[in-house]
Design a protein around this nucleic acid. Structure first.
Length: 567
RNA sequence: UGUCCGAUGGUGUAACUGGCAACACGUCUGAUUCUGGAUCAGAAGAGUCCAGGUUCGAAACCUGGUCGGACAACCA
């Protein structure tokens, strides 16, 4: 391969994002011996969504790029909210996205004993104390961002007393909420997180991994940074809201005297026409606005998977959107672009009609069945061809016929000719209508024998090409037409007195029948197809032997719809 | 009357770290096409939040504003 060819095949070098710049700088300085070790640290209290996908791709991607490794660690410090169901779904989602944590699956709860010892160190140094104030009082005495807080009356207990109390907390001598362990920092700090933050609280609840071993649990702030430290994470990448926590993590690590990872914060992903907070997604699930966490309308990874999105398309999306620190809202059309681009190359084509109207080809032999050859994927000759039966009676899309068409309409109309994809050119001769409703019930056409696809004289120019299906061969399937979940770009930003749920799209799911070519009988759950001229579809797991259910992932771009709208 | 972070076409990210703003999506033309898809060619669209300053030269550096976001769970 020549020099120039090599260059041409290379992707143009993308400039570094700010995190890569930091990492390369660290490597250059020989920090951590040039080692790069990241981690993805979800809390198992909900399903992962596309925003997490960004973080997953970032963490694993960075490690891959710099020949490092990535841990998967569950930050499971609150047994009240966490469940194994969520652990399992998260493992599946990360794996599905195509990432491998190898043997490095950890839990913050693995470190409970170690964390407890860290707490003891702080107590012995006089840097932590047991506080008996009830939650409301602690909260009230914390002050506000603009007003300093007041010191707890328990702040100056002796080391011995603190130690004894903390041991008794662990021993289960006190009820939930009776006491907490707090760091002794500065109640007047302009940073709220430095105002004697709670380190440990009493929760008599069984934990999904440690069972009833513990009745005191570390707060996230006391577990997260130290967990990263224990795992010798070099770069702790997290979202912007933890920027204010960083001084606390640094303080803890310094006082305890352990290895300090470098935390880098980036702006979380926002997507238009959806919501991303776990709380809101949970609400949609619990209140049955959707059919579950994996409802194809959800921005969850499991929802996108069920919808038919490919891991590649999501990873590419994560790459394309970039990483920075400013707030951002990515247009869903970019996500849609990514899945179209991917599926255009890999999805086989198939024909099917969703809103059928009958075509009768009057000059076609009544009993003849021709097997038309159609390319499985015009973008990829290797995909081969398939046979599609053609008969005298067909279905076409109702929208592909107009009795009185505008000049820009290239489809079927009285006296007009169109190409039937992979078959003949037909001409519309007359229509049959319902005497009452005046609706078109059948369209009578004639076909031109010499225009069969692939024949030497078949290249006569016609304006339009329609998809079709032989009426007697049509396979009836259930079609789920999905659309955006919300009707406004920013449902989070509800006006006064309204909630995000007031902006739910009533037409986000339309269930209709479809009539597909017989080759679809080979389809299995999870398969993806392009229904020609309609869009990309995936076979839903609800499908049975007897009946297929297909999901519309995304429609094809429709420039006709656009020009139609203009007029 | 706080602290921290941010501000570049409609959207998102760049600008080799001071040398007259680029890429992607979207939009619009045209070509081509047996998918009004795809592909190809091209166009419009920001003078970089504002005001000063440093400099031969500023999106970048400095100062002061403005606007936006985060922070007041015994959540993560």
């Amino acid at each position: 391969m020549s020099e120039t060819q090599t260059r041409k095949n290379e992707k143009p070098a993308r400039s570094l994002n700010f995190i890569e710049e930091i990492i390369e700088e660290d490597i250059r300085k020989g920090k951590n011996d040039g080692r790069v070790h990241t981690r993805f640290p979800p809390e198992p209290n909900g399903y992962l969504h596309i925003g997490h996908a960004k973080s997953i791709c970032l963490n694993f991607g960075l490690a891959e790029k710099y020949h490092g490794i990535t841990n998967l660690r569950f930050d499971d410090t609150n047994p009240i909210k966490e469940e194994v169901e969520y652990v399992d779904s998260i493992l599946e989602d990360v794996r599905w996205l195509g990432f491998d944590w190898e043997k490095r699956l950890y839990y913050a709860s693995d470190y409970f004993e170690q964390l407890f010892e860290y707490a003891v160190i702080l107590i012995k140094k006089g840097m932590a104390y047991v506080c008996d104030m009830p939650a409301e009082e602690i909260s009230a005495s914390r002050g506000t961002p603009t007003r300093p807080g007041k010191e707890s009356p328990f702040r100056n207990r002796t080391v011995e007393e603190n130690l004894a109390l903390f041991m008794r907390m662990r021993a289960g001598e006190f009820p939930d909420g009776a006491r907490v362990l707090r760091a002794k920092i500065d109640m007047t700090s302009p940073n709220m997180h430095m105002r004697d933050p709670v380190l440990y609280r009493i929760i008599h609840t069984s934990h999904h991994r440690t069972g009833n071993k513990w009745c005191i649990y570390p707060m996230y702030d006391f577990a997260h940074g130290q967990s990263d430290s224990i795992e010798h994470i070099t770069h702790s990448i997290c979202t912007l809201e933890f920027e204010v926590h960083r001084p606390l993590y640094d303080w803890l690590i310094r006082e305890i005297g352990i290895y300090a990872p470098r935390q880098i914060e980036f702006a979380r992903l926002n997507l238009s026409y959806t919501v991303m907070s776990k709380r809101k997604l949970l609400e949609l699930v619990k209140e049955n606005y959707v059919k579950g966490w994996d409802d194809p309308r959800m921005p969850t990874i499991s929802g996108l998977r069920r919808r038919g999105y490919t891991p590649d398309s999501i990873r590419n999306f994560a790459e394309i959107i970039g990483v920075a620190k400013r707030d951002n809202v990515i247009d869903v059309s970019l996500l849609e672009f990514c899945i179209r681009e991917d599926l255009n190359k890999r999805a086989n084509r198939v024909m099917g009609v969703i809103n059928p109207v009958k075509i009768i080809i009057d000059n076609y032999p009544e009993t003849l069945v021709e097997e038309m050859e159609a390319a499985n994927n015009p973008e990829n000759p290797d995909a081969g061809i398939r046979k599609v039966p053609f008969t005298r009676e067909l279905f076409i899309e109702r929208e592909d016929f107009l009795e009185d068409p505008p000049k820009q309409f290239f489809r079927l109309a009285p006296g007009r000719e169109v190409r039937l994809r992979a078959a003949y050119i037909i001409k519309c001769e007359r229509v049959e209508k319902d005497s009452v409703t005046q609706a078109v019930t059948a369209i009578h056409c004639t076909y031109d024998l010499n225009t069969k696809s692939g024949m030497p004289d078949s290249n006569r120019k016609v304006k339009g090409t329609l998809h079709w299906v032989s009426a007697p061969h049509a396979v009836e399937v259930d079609v789920r037409l999905y659309d955006r979940l919300f009707v406004v770009p920013d449902p989070d930003n509800a006006e006064e007195g309204k909630s995000f749920k007031d902006y739910l799209n009533p037409d986000s799911l339309k269930e209709v029948k479809g009539y597909l070519e017989p080759s679809i009988r080979l389809a299995k759950s999870g398969d993806r197809y392009q229904l020609e001229r309609l869009g990309y579809f995936s076979v839903d797991p609800d499908s049975t032997e007897k009946r297929l259910v297909i999901n519309r992932i995304v429609p094809l771009k429709d420039s006709w719809a656009k020009t139609e709208k203009k007029n």
